[in-house]
Amino acid sequence: MDKGPEASSRTAIDGEIGILARRKIEAGIIAPIYEVMREKLGEELAQSILDTAIRRAAIETGKAFAAKTPGGSTLRTFQELQDLWTQDDALTIEVIKATDAEFHYNVKRCRYAETYREMGLGHIGHLLSCNRDGVFCTGYDPRISLERSQTVMEGASHCDFKYRFSDKPDTAPE
Rank of each mutant, 00 (worst) to 15 (best):
R148D: 07
E94C: 12
E174K: 03
I96G: 02
I54H: 03
S129E: 13
G134V: 07
E102I: 12
R76A: 11
D167I: 01
R117P: 03
A98W: 05
A64G: 01
E39D: 07
G122W: 13
G18V: 08
G71V: 06
K162R: 15
P173V: 08
P32W: 09
K68M: 09
R56A: 07
K168S: 01
L20M: 10
E6W: 09
I17K: 10
C159H: 09
A57V: 08
R109A: 14
R23N: 05
S8A: 13
D167E: 08
S145A: 14
L91R: 14
K3Q: 15
E16T: 03
I25V: 15
G139S: 02
L41D: 01
K168I: 03
F165W: 15
L128E: 03
D83P: 02
I29N: 03
G4K: 14
A21T: 12
I96E: 13
G28V: 07
H158S: 15
G28Y: 08
L20R: 12
S9D: 13
Y34D: 00
T74C: 00
D51P: 00
I29E: 08
D160L: 12
L127T: 01
F136M: 08
R117N: 13
I33S: 00
T115M: 15
Q79W: 07
S48H: 05
F78N: 01
K3P: 04
H123G: 03
L45S: 01
E94W: 10
I25K: 13
K162W: 12
E154N: 11
R56K: 10
R148I: 14
E174S: 04
L81G: 04
R132M: 11
F161Y: 14
K168R: 08
T69L: 03
L128Y: 06
T115A: 15
G18F: 10
I19Q: 08
A113C: 13
G18L: 10
A101W: 03
E60G: 06
S149H: 14
E147V: 10
E26Q: 08
Y112H: 13
L91W: 15
P70L: 03
F161N: 04
R10P: 01
T92V: 15
I19M: 13
D89E: 14
V135M: 05
